[in-house]
Design a protein around this nucleic acid. Structure first.
Lengths: 255, 255
DNA sequence: CTGGCCAAGTTGGCCAGCCAACTTCCGTCG
DNA sequence: CGACGGAAGTTGGCTGGCCAACTTGGCCAG
């Protein structure tokens, strides 16, 4: 229901991209995995070549096709890339896999932001933040501990949600809090006392950690979160290429 | 030296993008973090608005700027995204940080590919592959174990390299093996006997694992690698947005 | 039969223009 | 003083066209 809404989303090149994506994954173009020429596609869809190129740029960024000057595009595979909302919302993600998402609020406190939090959320000294600790489950089994810091504008809304609310991002969107960009950092960390208590593991046992800072369309940070997953429950995958690279590897700094 | 070569790389919009990237990170546009209008930039650089938009699309994909209809672009930050080659080559990456990369070949065997390897490298049944196990060090300290599977065409070249060669990707490039696209999967895994022996950790102790399949511009796989990092040495970061999302989270399947 | 050359096909890149959708700001009216 | 409305500014989207760079395959000469 909400899926069809953002699938083609108005613009012409997105519709073309969605159609081509489906044609690729359904196994058309089996002819040695070669796509029709841009000009042929343009005529077929009744659009200009520029529009087709915009659509193909989307597919290339997703790792579905290559592109080289001089020869036709080649189908790489049916790399399944999730939508942005599916990535930010644990609830949305779980449901798309057919699992039942759950959440248990452990604590929600309001206190002055420390130096790191002020920098991440771009807050003035002395500003208060809302810090939330929540256990996340898939079909009843504990999977992840979520430690999220909200700036006041967002935290006030989250604090008013019922404690047993499964999804927080959906109500936030209805209150006009929009998510637009996110920076993720992935590494390994040992479980602290809270993690061990909530996940039922030993202190110091390894967890896959995803740190995430999300901003709205104006560039204002709306959340800073640390999600700690039990090993063996999830993995993250990324596609990148010479044409577009959003991934980076770096020496791990403090914290 | 090799850096300047791919920085602007011929095309006009890449030069504009490189110039804007530098202007942003050097702190121009301090005026509330607002970029000049597309039209103004087009006139300033003496190019068309379409070319400016191509350049800005690169910056948006890197997470440097936002973009919303109706208002000027906003500077998000100086997100440091590494070049593609810096990401694939441990040697290149280490040197860009000012560290001394090292490598010690542990084993290099040639044997028939198993089912998983055939699927990853798209090989016919019975084809032989080259399997390499190598310890990687930064300034002398062990950091990562690299387990790479090469198809015959590539493996024959790697096997002829001297055992103490630090970089493998650079000689490969000179032999015409080009890297174009890569799929990465990141999770946590316990050290096996080889990992423990080479890294000096205990068996079963957690490692940050990056599985990577790289293809050339024609879509043919050229390597399938598993890199296992000691915790606390590296982290991976990704930027994504509503406009372009190449990251995905998924339930961890077998192996 | 082999090697090299050439032409056709294809994508990359750049330009100029046009309109729609949206944001912001300011002036006006109640 | 506040709310409403409109105008100006800006980005999103699409078209049509042109040339350059590159790949591929076939033809031709040796």
């Amino acid at each position: 229901m909400a899926l069809d809404q953002d699938r083609a989303a108005g613009s012409l090149y997105r519709k073309v991209a969605a159609d081509l994506r489906e044609a690729i994954t359904s196994g058309s173009f089996g002819d040695a995995g070669r796509l029709p020429a841009e000009g042929a596609l343009a005529e077929q869809y009744g659009v200009s070549r520029g529009t087709v190129r915009q659509a193909l740029a989307l597919l290339r960024a997703d790792g579905l096709v290559t592109s080289r000057r001089g020869t036709r595009r080649v189908v790489l595979g049916s790399a399944r890339v999730q939508s942005f909302s599916e990535l930010l919302s644990f609830t949305h993600w779980a449901r798309s896999m057919g699992e039942e998402p759950g959440g248990r609020l452990d604590s929600m406190v309001r206190r002055p932001a420390d130096a790191a939090e002020r920098e991440q959320l771009r807050l003035e000294p002395g500003t208060e933040v809302y810090v939330m600790l929540r256990l996340r489950t898939l079909s009843g089994t504990p999977v992840m501990v979520e430690r999220t810091v909200y700036p006041p504008r967002v935290g006030e809304l989250v604090a008013q949600l019922p404690p047993d609310a499964v999804s927080h991002t959906e109500p936030l969107r209805e209150h006009g809090i929009l998510f637009s960009d996110a920076d993720h950092t992935i590494d390994v960390v040992g479980a602290n006392a809270d993690d061990a208590r909530l996940l039922g593991c030993r202190r110091g046992s390894p967890l896959l950690r995803e740190k995430r800072r999300t901003t709205d369309p104006t560039g204002t940070p709306v959340e800073w979160s640390q999600d700690r997953y039990l090993p063996g429950t999830v993995a993250f995958s990324i596609h990148n290429s010479l044409a577009s690279s959003a991934l980076s590897r770096h020496a791990r700094e403090n914290d």
